[in-house]
């Protein structure tokens, strides 16, 4: 298991319970979507898993070891090396080039400049933005900026990629593009992904969809890849009548 959460609870001051005893296991190489209406606790869950927030109660294991009681310094170390983050807003640094934005976390983690360059070039290529390496990210479209953010999140080869509404700020064509790339990272590299979204269509790209409500997991379902036979799928799901 990459992630094991047990009894995860987050209570804010004033007694508001954002998360009520959530159990979640994410095996290596799985692509999980967490969905539900706003306020259901899905972002809180992701923030706890990524060490951006601390649980009121419960346990988190990452890569087989307990991390919930880690100090901020230890968490910073874990976040840098073992977790990749992608958010709705891309949070890129405007006065650094695309290449530098992507390499920065690697250099901060102590990867050699040469190795960081190699990894960056390969990621930008895979994500289809190699030609923009020397530009400022501010010159790119939203979809392209999100691809830069994905490259940055993956440069340290994290155990898990945590994505919070990664398509929330994109038009539908760019959103589909980003989802296709996340799928590729999962299918071809075995990247473990936990993705939070309110968008059912985005969630439906994952292997497993966990639905939350009122701070709890309401239900979950495993999805099969399409069976590849377009004609059969179409006629099963939507025949036109004439």
């Amino acid at each position: 298991m990459v992630i094991v959460a047990r009894g995860l609870t987050r209570e804010y001051e004033g007694g508001v319970k954002a998360l009520r005893s959530v159990d979640l296991e994410v095996p290596d190489g799985e692509f999980v979507a967490v969905t539900g209406p706003s306020g259901c606790g899905k972002s809180t869950l992701l923030n706890l898993l990524g060490g951006l927030d601390r649980p009121t109660a419960g346990e988190i294991e990452l890569g087989g070891r307990r991390v919930d009681a880690f100090s901020e310094a230890k968490w910073a170390h874990v976040r840098r090396r073992e977790i990749g983050f992608v958010f709705q807003f891309f949070n890129l640094i405007g006065n650094l080039s695309v290449a530098d934005n992507v390499e920065l976390p690697a250099l901060l983690a102590g990867v050699s400049a040469k190795e960081a360059r190699t990894r960056r070039a390969e990621l930008l290529e895979t994500l289809g933005i190699a030609e923009h390496a020397d530009q400022s990210p501010t010159r790119l479209s939203g979809g392209q900026q999100q691809r830069v953010a994905i490259a940055r999140a993956l440069i340290n080869r994290p155990r898990v990629l945590l994505a919070d509404e990664p398509t929330g700020n994109l038009d539908s064509a760019s959103a589909r593009d980003v989802m296709r790339l996340l799928r590729t990272m999962h299918d071809e590299r075995g990247q473990t992904i936990v993705l939070v979204t309110h968008d059912a269509r985005v969630a439906a790209r994952a292997d497993r969809v966990v639905t939350m409500r009122d701070g709890r997991i309401a239900d979950e379902t495993r999805l099969d890849a399409g069976r590849g036979d377009i004609a059969a799928t179409v006629s099963r799901l939507m025949q036109l009548g004439v």
Partner: peptide, 22 residues
């Protein structure tokens, strides 16, 4: 409702696969 939701999500997944290649 949970069962129905699973069926709709599965249909959505398959439609999305179709949309990409038709």
């Amino acid at each position: 409702i949970a069962r129905q939701r699973a069926a709709y999500l599965q249909a959505l997944r398959e439609l999305d696969d179709v949309a990409a290649q038709t």
